[in-house]
């Protein structure tokens, strides 16, 4: 079957309810392209999840343009992972099995088996439902950039919800 067209469906749904349209980011030019500097098996992998994941004991996200990040140590027991995201309806399964959004077991396995050279010591997490693109650019992205640089990652896997 054809993939779901979320933008059309949700735009029409909100319009029928009389709500303002959600403004997805639409690129107006081709992206940059940075070649890998070394093979995957020698690269340190950074991970960013926008699923609203946090570790039990950390402060949860709020739902009004929360542009903060949490660090999820790669050795976190999976049963300590929690989620808070403005579209909670998509979290039903992740709250039962967090690894359908934050696959720590699979990440540790690709590190241990040498598929990647190493992992950043923690995945970066944020709550992706931020309506202000300005806040994404000015607040969120600098934190992500700074953390990846500190972790000295060579490549970054970004996992939207």
């Amino acid at each position: 079957m054809a993939p779901v067209r979320y933008i059309d469906a949700i735009t029409q749904r909100y319009a029928s309810l009389g709500y303002a349209p959600y403004r997805w980011y639409v690129a107006d030019d081709k992206p940059s392209f940075a070649p890998l500097k070394k093979p995957l098996s020698q690269s340190r992998l950074g991970v960013l999840t926008t699923s609203g994941c946090y570790v039990a004991g950390q402060v949860a996200y709020h739902y009004k343009d929360d542009a903060s990040i949490r660090l999820i140590p790669m050795d976190t027991p999976v049963d300590r992972l929690r989620f808070a995201h403005i579209t909670e309806n998509y979290l039903v399964d992740a709250r039962r099995d967090p690894e359908c959004l934050v696959p720590l077991t699979a990440l540790r396995a690709v590190r241990d088996e040498g598929v990647v050279g190493a992992l950043g010591d923690a995945a970066i997490s944020c709550m992706g439902g931020i309506y202000s693109q300005r806040r994404v650019r000015e607040e969120l992205i600098p934190q992500v950039e700074g953390t990846f640089k500190q972790q000295q990652v060579d490549i970054a896997l970004l996992v939207p919800m």
């Binding site: 690129a27 992206p31 940075a34 070649p35 896997l157």
Partner: peptide, 16 residues
């Protein structure tokens, strides 16, 4: 997410 990917890539960090 795409915004972050494009930004990191422009800095020289390959993203997926």
């Amino acid at each position: 997410m795409s915004l972050a990917a494009r930004h990191l890539e422009a800095l020289g960090i390959p993203t997926l």
